[in-house]
């Protein structure tokens, strides 16, 4: 799975403020990657504020990718804000961020 992700992976950058209004576009973007069958790396390094709707979309994305098999959705370089919020919401495991 990891190998496939390496070679055939798309990537996107999460905006600095990932709030309710960003959840829709984020969902579309992940769905796109899901239907095209290639992996998606979400760069979360620039995020200063993220709220639960976006994280929920990411969780749904991670699960959907896992169900489809093959490619994966990975969150790369999560910023401090992303880590904190995910940990407050108890989503570290679901987002595979706990290391």
């Amino acid at each position: 799975m990891a190998e496939a992700g390496e070679s055939m992976s798309d990537s996107m950058i999460l905006p600095a403020v990932a709030d309710l209004t960003e959840a829709g576009p984020l969902k579309q973007r992940i769905e796109q990657a899901l239907t095209s069958g290639i992996g998606l790396t979400v760069d979360a390094s620039a995020v200063q504020r993220i709220s639960s709707p976006c994280l929920q979309v990411l969780v749904a994305g991670v699960t959907s990718f896992a169900k489809a098999g093959g490619a994966a959705l990975t969150i790369s370089n999560p910023s401090q804000a992303v880590r904190e919020t995910a940990s407050v919401l108890g989503l570290m495991n679901a987002l595979e961020l706990s290391k």
Binding site: A23, P53, Q56, V57, A60, T63, G90, N93
Partner: peptide, 26 residues
Amino acid sequence: EVDAITDDIPELSALVPTECHLAWQV
């Protein structure tokens, strides 16, 4: 100790991004 319960989150295609389907156990 917070744990999110993510089982109620629908498939991505069925997910309305503005709705909350998370549950928590604390």
